[in-house]
């Protein structure tokens, strides 16, 4: 019981103010999480309609003339790395960074496009080749940001700067569970896009599409659609990551608050014991002093 009563009191106060901060952050994160999930829901109809049209065109044009669909020998790889702009979100940013590092066999053959400042800082410190950085929209991704990233990456792919493109993002499983995820976006796999057979409806759709007019030709339409499809995928990944970031932050802050509470309980107990010991000591001193005077 060497500690001073005043010191313990001060520590309790400091832990308590930290707790207030983490608790506030937890509340903010859960409010933001709710909003972000709404955006994620809203994206779904667009994405589904997009996949459906892609499937039809791929079936229609039959060939795989597009450069974005041809596999080629892989020499260089590009990664679109989606992280947050802010920290204090548990393992959210670190998990993504680790996944990329595991996947990259050779630093020289990897080109990085980072979304969010955390990822950029991490990889810049480790001397990775960062070709593009997109900051300031990790919390509220917007379709045009996704479009910009995609346009640049697709141009690079077309010019042969790299031979495949991966998207690294955090998949939102539930409010308490998020998984880092690596997805190949280019070259596109034709088999993934073949329309799923729906019973009954399939026949009708087939007839419809056999009389369908295309303006311009299906091949050209596909050229237009592929960038949009990739953009939509990137946008979806950005939104999922945003939701994951809030989820991770909420969980992290929740456990920080719990820990702070535990610390406060422990310190309060200690404080009371020290105080009690001091009183007991004082009484015994007074009593023995009085004894001596007799």
């Amino acid at each position: 019981m060497a500690e001073n009563v005043q010191d313990i009191k001060r520590r309790i106060k400091s832990v308590n103010s930290t707790k207030q901060i983490t608790h506030a952050m937890e509340l903010v994160a859960s409010a933001k999480l709710r909003k972000t999930r709404e955006y994620a829901e809203g994206r779904r109809p667009y994405f589904e309609a997009m996949i459906e049209s892609m499937g039809i065109f791929v079936g229609k044009s039959g060939s795989t003339k597009s450069v974005f669909m041809n596999q080629r020998e892989v020499k260089k790889t590009a990664y679109i790395v989606i992280t947050g702009d802010k920290g204090l979100a548990g393992g959210y940013n670190v998990n993504i960074a680790k996944l990329v590092e595991e996947h990259v066999a050779n630093k020289e053959d990897a080109v990085l496009y980072t979304v969010g400042s955390r990822g950029r800082d991490y990889f810049r410190n480790r001397d990775y080749n960062i070709q593009g950085e997109y900051l300031g929209n990790s919390e509220r991704p917007n379709f045009f940001n996704a479009k910009e990233v995609t346009r640049i990456v697709m141009e690079g792919y077309k010019n042969g700067e790299y031979d495949e493109v991966y998207l690294v993002y955090t998949k939102f499983v539930s409010t308490i569970s998020q998984h880092p995820y690596l997805l190949k976006v280019l070259p596109l796999d034709v088999n993934d896009l073949k329309p799923a057979q729906k019973d009954g409806e399939a026949e009708e759709t087939k007839v419809e599409h056999s009389v369908m007019q295309y303006e311009p030709e299906p091949d050209e339409l596909l050229e237009y659609l592929i960038p949009n499809f990739v953009t939509s995928t990137v946008y979806g990944a950005m939104i999922e990551s945003a939701a994951s970031e809030q989820g991770a932050r909420r969980t992290a802050m929740e456990s920080a608050t719990t820990n702070a509470n535990e610390m406060i309980d422990g310190l309060t107990l200690k404080y009371n014991r020290v105080r009690q010991a001091a009183i007991t000591q004082e009484i015994s001193e007074i009593v023995s002093g009085a004894e001596a005077l007799k």
Partner: peptide
């Protein structure tokens, strides 16, 4: 992309940009 057009009910099936 090739000019304005109108779609009415019973329009012929069409896909365009």
């Amino acid at each position: 992309c090739e000019g304005e057009f109108a779609v009415l009910a019973e329009h012929t099936p069409l896909t365009t940009i």
